[in-house]
């Protein structure tokens, strides 16, 4: 075997070895996701909106596209902006404050209600780094959301003490008129003939 062929074989072998190390590094990379805050209790008036900022961060080894999804009772009236972000990993060793996290703005818009309602749900930060696998694993962390929706001011005003008293008085007047009629009285308007 000539010297040049030997060199080519050696270079090829080294290249292949380096390639395998590189591929091995990529394949064995771990993934990690975090979210803050981990649990939130909010109160909002029915028909109005309430915003919440969630920080999502990557504790894995590589950039990862992470989507935020609303689950549970809150899903129908929740808007998320942005829906997904590609997030760079946190520097190691991991420490606070979060350096590369992204902020997602979540807006809750529950409908008008006449009574207090409690909605439970979660905001899940989901990464899907395994497309094409036989049984691919998605990774997720969730922030638990408890949303207390108070009666809308429209209904609250409608059912205020003042309005209830007025309603009672109107009912009383109607009852008096009915009693008068049953007693044989009649209410009539007469034109004064003297004028």
């Amino acid at each position: 075997m000539s010297t040049s062929i030997k060199k080519e074989v050696i270079v090829s072998a080294i290249s292949a070895f380096l390639f395998l190390i590189l591929v091995g590094t990529i394949v064995s990379a771990d993934v990690g996701v975090g979210i803050s805050p981990s649990k939130v209790a909010l109160q909002v008036e029915g028909g109005k909106t309430q915003q919440l900022e969630l920080i999502v961060f990557n504790t894995g080894d590589n950039d990862m596209k992470i989507s935020l999804i609303a689950d549970g009772d809150i899903a129908t009236f929740t808007k998320i902006e942005p829906l997904s972000e590609t997030i760079k990993p946190e520097p190691k060793p991991h420490s606070l404050p979060i350096k590369n996290g992204k902020t997602f703005v979540v807006t809750f818009s529950p409908g008008i209600t006449s009574s207090e309602k409690k909605y439970m749900g979660s905001m899940s930060a989901v990464g899907s780094p395994s497309e094409g696998s036989q049984f691919g694993g998605n990774v997720a962390v969730a922030s638990q959301i408890e949303l207390l929706v108070s009666p809308s001011s429209f209904f609250a005003n409608l059912l205020s003490t003042k309005n209830l008293i007025i309603l009672g008085i109107i009912v009383l007047i109607i009852i008096i008129i009915i009693l008068l009629k049953r007693s044989g009285f009649r209410i009539e308007f007469k034109k004064n003939k003297n004028k």
Partner: peptide
């Protein structure tokens, strides 16, 4: 007070084969 929940997965979790 700020709370954080964070988990890490090994690469084997992402590609399960039977």
């Amino acid at each position: 007070i700020t709370t954080y929940v964070t988990c890490n997965w090994v690469s084997d979790d992402l590609d399960v084969s039977f």
